[in-house]
């Protein structure tokens, strides 16, 4: 069983079929470059959770949906600048990070954020509080934890879409979760097992 799993893992990491045929994302990128909007919409549906998670780790929940649209429209406009079509995920994640930084730059110049936008109206207070604690973690941990706990991606999926190494994602997940447990425990004055945050 162990040998079979190991063999599968090695096979999965080598990905020999990937070398022969380009991944479907690359073909979609090429079509979108030619002006095919349907192909770009498929890319949008595939990578929207990634962009949403990257933005949610940085900006208030109420702003995220509009910024996701903004990021993808920017990506469509600048698709010609993407060198490697197989790395659309990492590329669009960089655009999302830059857009989040730009959001704060503009927000500082215009007006203060409203509380309900910042907290996430209609969501449980506990959830908003947990999200706030995740946002206070170091950047490497918070993005990985949001993608795992909020967007529901697995570790290998996070690695594949962000372009990070699986080992790095695994380390970030475990260290981030450990730190999150500590902070939640300190904040709530007890452990998480009692059912309250």
């Amino acid at each position: 069983m162990f040998e079979v799993e190991t063999g599968t893992l090695l096979f999965a990491e080598r990905r020999p079929e990937a070398a022969e045929a380009p991944p479907p994302e690359a073909a979609l990128v090429e079509s979108a470059r030619a002006g095919d909007r349907a192909a770009f919409e498929r890319l949008y549906h595939t990578y929207a959770p990634l962009v949403h998670g990257v933005l949610l780790a940085r900006v208030p929940y109420g702003e995220v949906s509009d910024l996701v649209q903004d990021v993808f429209l920017t990506a469509f406009r600048k698709l010609g600048a993407l060198r490697d079509p197989e790395r659309f995920g990492p590329w669009v994640a960089i655009i999302a990070r830059n857009r989040a930084a730009d959001f704060y730059r503009r927000a500082r110049q215009t007006e203060e954020l409203r509380d309900e936008l910042a907290q996430g109206a209609g969501r449980p207070a506990e959830a908003a509080e947990a999200l706030e604690i995740i946002r206070s973690l170091p950047e490497a941990y918070r993005e990985t934890l949001v993608l795992r706990l909020v967007e529901g991606m697995t570790g290998p999926e996070i690695a594949e879409r962000t372009g990070l190494r699986p080992a790095s994602v695994r380390v970030n997940l475990h260290r981030g979760m450990k730190l999150l447990r500590q902070r939640l425990g300190v904040k709530c004055g007890g452990d998480l097992k009692d059912g309250s945050l």
């Binding site: 919409e41 929207a48 706990l149 998480l192």
Partner: peptide, 20 residues
Amino acid sequence: ADVARLESLLGTFAHEPRPL
């Protein structure tokens, strides 16, 4: 247990698919 609870709690913030 902790991860599962956080998943259910934070899942309310997950991306809701909408057309571009």
